[in-house]
Design a protein around this nucleic acid. Structure first.
Length: 218
DNA sequence: ATCCCGAGGG
DNA sequence: CCCTCTGGAT
């Protein structure tokens, strides 16, 4: 199944716009329960107004909230961003650390967010167990666990380490475009013949094709 | 387990 | 109206 995924999404990648680790960290916090497209709509203004950790740490809460409002959970996200920035200034000299152990100590940064930053801004192989990753690996029979850390351990034993970051992207792309939470497009899925969950969505190709969201397939 | 929260789709 | 969208903290 991993081979087919690799062939279907050869250039899967992080779809959040960013230019440095700090920008990716902020964008990833904003991406909680929100589409990347919407995050990318607000980050240009945000990054221009707050170019450094010091700028976030000293930000006016109301002004920051107004810019990120449309991403949802805006009060909690503003709290996380300001608290995270203050913590970065106090404990890491204003720099984003490149280790999981350090990243997860920041307010608003969990294991998933930390692995996104490591994998895409620092080039460290990371398994990103988000909602898509959890749903697809369970449907595929790669794991039976529900705890994200246990899922990560199961998948780590199945996939070579050098492929961890790309495999995370491919599963996420497939989850976003075809293997949806609600009505997965089983009839259009290239993994169907190998999938233990084939049939939980429409198996008629024409019906399934209607559910496939636009995106690169090669 | 529940809360945070807005926008877009069906 | 309903649901979902690359979570994290309590």
């Amino acid at each position: 199944m991993d081979r087919i995924l690799a062939g279907t999404y050869p250039d899967a990648h992080c779809e959040l716009d960013f230019g440095n680790p700090l920008e990716l960290l902020v964008a990833t916090i904003l991406s909680a329960q929100c589409t990347d497209k919407r995050v990318n709509a607000v980050t240009p203004r945000l990054f221009a107004k707050y170019p450094t950790t010091e700028d976030y740490a000293a930000a006016d809460r109301a002004e920051l909230e107004e810019i990120i409002r449309s991403t949802g959970f805006f009060r909690a996200k503003a709290n996380s961003i300001i608290g995270m920035a203050q913590s970065l200034c106090e404990r890491f000299g204003g720099e984003v650390p490149g280790r999981l152990k350090d990243l997860v100590t920041l307010p608003g940064v969990g294991r998933k967010t930390a692995n996104v930053v490591l994998g895409n801004a620092f080039g460290v192989p990371g398994i990103t167990v988000d909602t898509h990753f959890q749903r697809l690996t369970r449907r595929f029979g790669w794991t039976a666990e529900t705890d994200p850390v246990k899922i990560e351990q199961d998948v780590a034993g199945l996939i070579p380490k050098r492929d961890w970051t790309m495999m995370s992207h491919r599963l996420i792309w497939h989850g976003r475009r075809m293997c949806h939470a609600r009505r997965p497009a089983c009839g259009a899925c290239p993994l169907a013949v190998l999938c233990p969950s084939y049939g939980i969505g429409p198996t008629d190709p024409a019906e399934a094709a209607k559910l496939v969201r636009p995106g690169p397939f090669s």
